[in-house]
């Protein structure tokens, strides 16, 4: 089973890269754009076939390594 993990800075944590991207978009004329947040995507493959078990494994990976939960939140999509 494959999983996509999306990691972004938590709401309330300043994202200077997101702000810089937002500024660049405005300067290109995309005036209405707001709340741009930059994150990262981690794709991984698991031998596990049970969805619940797979989700639990990836959650443990996020808590232990993939995300820094002091400042980051994560979303797991099983595909």
């Amino acid at each position: 089973m494959k999983a996509n993990v999306t990691i972004t800075l938590k709401k309330g944590v300043l994202d200077p890269q997101g702000k810089a991207i937002e500024g660049a978009l405005h300067s290109l004329g995309f005036d209405g754009v707001e709340n741009v947040r930059q994150g990262k995507l981690i794709e991984l493959e698991l031998p596990e076939t049970d969805r619940e078990a797979a989700r639990a494994q990836v959650e443990a990976m996020c808590e232990k390594l993939l995300a820094n939960t002091v400042i980051e939140s994560y979303r797991i999509d099983l595909v």
């Binding site: 800075l9 944590v13 300043l14 200077p16 890269q17 810089a20 820094n68 002091v70 400042i71």
Partner: peptide, 11 residues
């Protein structure tokens, strides 16, 4: 140690 070290404010 507690907390986190993030990207510098001015990148």
């Amino acid at each position: 140690l507690p907390g986190a070290l993030m990207r510098n404010r001015e990148l």
